[in-house]
Amino acid sequence: MAERPKTVKCLVWDLDNTLWRGILSDGDDVRVTEDVRKVIAELDRRGVLQAVCSKNDHDLAWERLERLGVAEYLVLPHIGWGPKSDSVRSIAERLNFAHATMAFVDDTPAERAEVSYHLPEVRCYDAEQVLDLLNLPEFSPDTITVDSERRRAMYQAGFRRDAERERYRGADEDFLRSLDLWMAIDGATEDELSRVEELTLRTSQMNATGVHYGDAELRRLTADPEHEVLVVTMGDRFGPHGAVGLVLLRRTAPAWHLRLLATSCRVVSFGAGSVILNWLVDRAATAGVHLTADFRRTDRNRMMEVAYRFAGFDDRPCACHDGPDVASGDAAGVERLHLVPDPRPGPTTMSLAAVDLVDGTRR
């Protein structure tokens, strides 16, 4: 059976004779057809970000996009006269997306060829394929979550947050405090399970093992009294970040086993991974248990390894762990890390509300 193509996270649109009909610089009264509007709106609902890469006068083109009522759907517009491959690369870097999750649509074969030559992993489409995009598997995620439908708004809030960071002249910690950040850690609800599964699929840089947990497996684990399936949500004064992390934990009397920690790349700069790990270590210390964690090196998750090591995990075996070093799913290359927990202070740059794994209350 053919492998399902990687889901597209961002589609980059050309404008002339692609997103709209006509050529703006030729003085055409360009317009967006109703069918294209439906494609834009549906991709947005599915959580696919959309950007612009067009050889045009920026101010004139953006004013026209606003007048046509589609500018609100578009992030990171690159409208100018440079090579389009440079623009697509810049968009991917700003979003922190792998090239294999990017797509580009243009009516000109030479422009598609230029992007393909310099960025071979980016998928390119002819403008004639626009109305078929919604039927392609790479644009059809298995599930559409609450966070999918507001992903574009969350990224736009993130760009405003980044702009304020650039203007801020104080220390980084002071800036983080100025955001009024908050984090909540709680058991996954029925509505959140699809987002939890999505996190195991979409997150690669901040995923400790790369093991995918499907909906059926997650439901089984939520019903298992030994397991905790915890969802991490965050927000600040700019708005909610949505569900940004997953903690999959097996609790037994001698030890707690962290089977998976995955966090969104969007919250790396806030130290989310360290906050979660320190909270977990502190709770394990209170419970008087040993702590183990699964980790598998990939070509993208070096930052997660640093977070584990910085929290105090190492690969020295300990007699008080919870049995054979076996992880669920595809366990090839998985290491079992160990830590003897000690009390940890709470975060200083955000407020934290979390279920207490010791007595089940919220604190």
Rank of each mutant, 00 (worst) to 15 (best):
A92F: 00
I185A: 09
L230K: 15
G187L: 08
H241M: 08
S54K: 14
P5Y: 01
G312D: 03
I40A: 07
G170Y: 03
P120F: 04
A272H: 13
G80W: 12
S54G: 11
T361H: 09
R31T: 04
A41H: 11
C265Y: 04
E228T: 07
G158L: 07
D26H: 13
D106C: 12
S116N: 13
L230H: 15
V267W: 12
H212A: 13
L24M: 03
E42M: 05
K6L: 04
P343I: 01
E72I: 03
V355E: 13
H321V: 03
H241R: 11
F139E: 02
K84E: 10
P345F: 00
D172F: 13
T222Q: 08
L133S: 02
M303F: 05
V48N: 06
T143H: 14
V326I: 11
L136W: 09
E192R: 15
S178Q: 09
E93V: 00
V267S: 08
A153H: 11
A255E: 12
V8K: 05
Y125A: 04
V8N: 00
V247W: 13
D174P: 05
T145V: 09
R167M: 02
R4C: 03
P225S: 00
D315H: 04
D215L: 15
T101D: 04
R89G: 00
A61H: 04
V122M: 03
L337Q: 02
L193S: 08
T189E: 10
G245Q: 14
P77H: 02
F139C: 01
D142I: 05
R344I: 00
G210V: 09
S274M: 09
V39K: 06
A331C: 14
D147M: 13
S274F: 01
I144R: 09
G69C: 06
T298G: 14
R151A: 04
G271I: 05
R195F: 12
I185W: 12
R151K: 13
T200Q: 10
Y168R: 00
R336H: 07
V326Y: 02
R302D: 06
L201A: 10
V30M: 01
H118I: 02
T200V: 12
A307R: 06
A153F: 09
N278A: 08
A327R: 13
C318S: 14
V247H: 14
R45T: 09
A272E: 05
T298F: 11
G210I: 07
I91R: 04
E228F: 14
S25Y: 11
V268A: 08
R160W: 02
G242T: 12
G82D: 07
L248I: 09
F139P: 02
M304Q: 14
V267D: 06
A103Q: 06
G27V: 04
L11W: 02
Y125C: 05
Q50E: 08
D191V: 12
W13G: 11
S54C: 07
V75N: 02
V8G: 01
A307Q: 08
G214V: 11
L181S: 08
E228D: 14
T145W: 10
D16W: 13
R202H: 06
R250G: 01
T7G: 04
G245C: 13
T252A: 12
G69R: 01
R266F: 06
S54Q: 11
R151M: 00
T263E: 08
G329F: 11
V229Y: 10
E197H: 15
M183E: 07
V36M: 07
G82R: 07
L230Y: 15
N301A: 07
E149L: 08
H227M: 10
A311R: 04
L19M: 14
L11R: 03
A216V: 15
